[in-house]
Computed example of a mutant assay.
Amino acid sequence: MHQADAHTGSGTGAVPPDGTGTEDTLELRLTEELLALLGDDTPPPAVGGAASALVGSPGAWTPVGTPAGEFQLVTVEPGRDLPVISRWMNDPAVAAFWELAGPEAVTGAHLGRQLDGDGRSMPCLGVLDGTPMSYWEIYRADLDPLARHYPSRPHDMGVHLLIGGVGNRGRGIGSALLRAVSDLVLDNRPLCARVIAEPDLRNTPSVSAFLSAGFRFCAEVELPEKRAALMVRDRAHRDDL
């Protein structure tokens, strides 16, 4: 259940190198039959990005215009993207919440557990005007260990985010991208009624960014690794906030 950075995401506890952390996104094991029932009938797109019946194909979602520029998600390819993502993870402001600092193998193992898993979480780069500048995880919140700690609903989707470059922090870019990505989730996952996030309550800039992006604060949630702010963006009210 990995989260995001000190500016536009949420924190988490460290995951052991063998991936056996008790609250990791991929810790719960699902049978093929259950996976089929929990997926939806939306066919994956013919081109672009890895596809999953559980989260779709974020890497193939249409680029969108934002106040910061044209933005799109690109499915992570470790051979191409690991160096830059690992560098971001070693930024002290990011490491304080993601706890994935260290050699590239640490971040590589985290990416691999998602890319080689059952499709409940998809790691993506955020590309703004052609430049990779953020890291995202689009995941099924209702199938995540997080669901043990809040009143989840079927097809709840979750987002984790970190902004890579210091120059892109503190200028409202995170809020603009959070709104854009949550809109993409709702547009491309028709059975999803809510987008969920759980930033660390200590991460004031992150909580503020979610509020500015149209999420509402629902509750404080005691998670094994942190006390979190449960943030929700509802499909029904997406144009009102």
Results as ranks from 00 to 15, higher is better:
H149G: 03
S175R: 04
L177M: 14
N168D: 13
G164F: 01
I163N: 02
S152F: 13
S175F: 06
V181P: 00
P154A: 09
G172V: 10
I173H: 15
R148I: 04
P151N: 08
G172C: 15
I163H: 00
G170Y: 12
L178F: 06
S182A: 15
E137L: 10
I163G: 04
V181W: 01
Y150E: 01
P151T: 09
D142L: 05
E137Q: 15
A147P: 07
G172H: 13
S175I: 10
P151Y: 12
R140W: 05
L162W: 02
H155M: 04
H160L: 09
L177E: 01
G158D: 10
I138A: 05
M157N: 07
R148Y: 13
H149R: 14
A147H: 14
R179H: 13
A176P: 02
Y139P: 02
P145Q: 06
R153G: 03
H155C: 06
R169E: 07
R140E: 02
Y139G: 01
R140F: 08
I173S: 03
G172Y: 12
G165F: 13
G164E: 07
R140A: 14
M157V: 11
D144I: 03
G158Y: 14
V159T: 10
V159M: 14
I138D: 01
H160K: 10
L143I: 09
E137K: 07
S182K: 02
N168V: 07
E137M: 03
G170I: 14
H149A: 11
R153Q: 13
R179K: 15
A176F: 09
L143H: 02
L146G: 13
H149S: 11
V166Q: 12
P145C: 05
R169W: 10
A180N: 06
A180W: 03
G172I: 08
G170E: 14
P151V: 11
I173G: 01
R148M: 11
H149E: 01
L177P: 07
D144Q: 09
G158R: 11
V166K: 12
A176R: 05
L143G: 02
S152T: 13
V181H: 00
H155N: 11
L178P: 01
G172Q: 11
G167A: 14
P154L: 05
G170D: 12
Y139R: 04
R153F: 06
H160G: 11
